[in-house]
């Protein structure tokens, strides 16, 4: 399935990331399919977040390539700066420890996400400063998009509350909505279900499936919560000690003895979760 070039959005090839003498990621290759949910799993310290940071430009990979396919065009992500990856390549991400703007309202958080569109509409601030009608229309559209996402994550009523005042689960969803307001082609989620209870986690599954179905956004996610991974992923890549040890459908991965061994060696509970969770 990795050979199918027309149907992939992200191709990671021979990615290596070294920190001094430590090899965090070693010659990792995998593809993420367009309009698919690809999960990256593995025990703690397997190098998942490092892969994410390479894809989203927060780290410069030591070697290897990361290609993003937009129609016919291919963008080499390893050559772009972090903010250009979000701006030009349309890759959005969330963080393992939520990084909202806590002192700004939920609505403002979603407005900041539309910065580049609004910046263009405001004529690099000058048109906005004199209150040009074209800018006002653009701002109206931005507020509409933000309202649309607030409704979708069930936070419309709390639009004017500070993001830092929202409950933890709401903050997680707001961060996903903020990433979606950049209108990304690829959404990278770093442990979106961490700290969520069973009900919130089920709501998250629904949200992610609806994002894939309605927006056509491809999703790449790191997750420890096996109920999320097994239920919604189309494709699972398993990492351990910086290398890929298995990949395939959730069913294939779950039955893979190497995966079970890696999880048993690292974290018993998670291994049991892998074996027992039924989709």
């Amino acid at each position: 399935m990795s050979g199918d070039r027309t149907d992939r959005i992200l191709g990671v090839d021979q990615l290596t990331m070294r920190f001094g003498g430590i090899v965090a990621v070693n010659e990792l290759s995998f593809d993420a399919g367009r309009r698919r949910i690809t999960a990256l799993i593995g025990p703690n310290g397997a190098g998942k977040t490092t892969v994410f940071n390479c894809i989203t430009g927060f780290y410069k990979p030591t070697s290897g390539t990361i290609r993003l396919t937009h129609g016919a065009a291919e963008i080499a992500l390893e050559r772009l700066n972090d903010f250009r990856i979000a701006k030009q390549a349309k890759v959005a991400r969330t963080f393992q420890n939520i990084r909202l703007f806590p002192g700004m309202t939920a609505l403002e958080n979603l407005m900041v996400a539309q910065h580049n569109m609004l910046m263009r509409a405001s004529g690099l601030t000058l048109l906005g400063l004199i209150g040009a009608p074209s800018y006002r229309a653009a701002e109206k559209r931005a507020i509409d998009l933000a309202s649309f996402w607030l409704r979708r994550i069930g936070l419309f009523e709390r639009a004017d509350d500070a993001a830092g005042n929202l409950p933890y689960g709401d903050q997680r969803r707001l961060e996903i909505a903020r990433a979606m307001c950049t209108e990304p082609a690829l959404l990278c989620l770093d442990e979106p279900a961490a700290g969520l209870n069973a009900r919130e986690s089920a709501a998250l599954n629904e949200l992610l499936l609806s994002i894939r179905a309605e927006e056509g956004t491809s999703i790449l996610l790191i997750e420890h919560d096996m109920s999320v991974v097994m239920e919604i992923s189309d494709h699972v890549v398993v990492m351990d000690y910086g290398v890929k040890i298995a990949e395939g459908t959730p069913q294939q991965v779950r039955d893979d003895p190497k995966v079970i061994a890696a999880y048993l060696g690292a974290d018993e509970e998670e291994a049991i979760a892998v074996m027992e969770s039924d989709t």
Partner: peptide
């Protein structure tokens, strides 16, 4: 960091 992740 969040700003850069949003393409600012």
């Amino acid at each position: 960091v969040a700003c850069r992740a949003l393409g600012i």
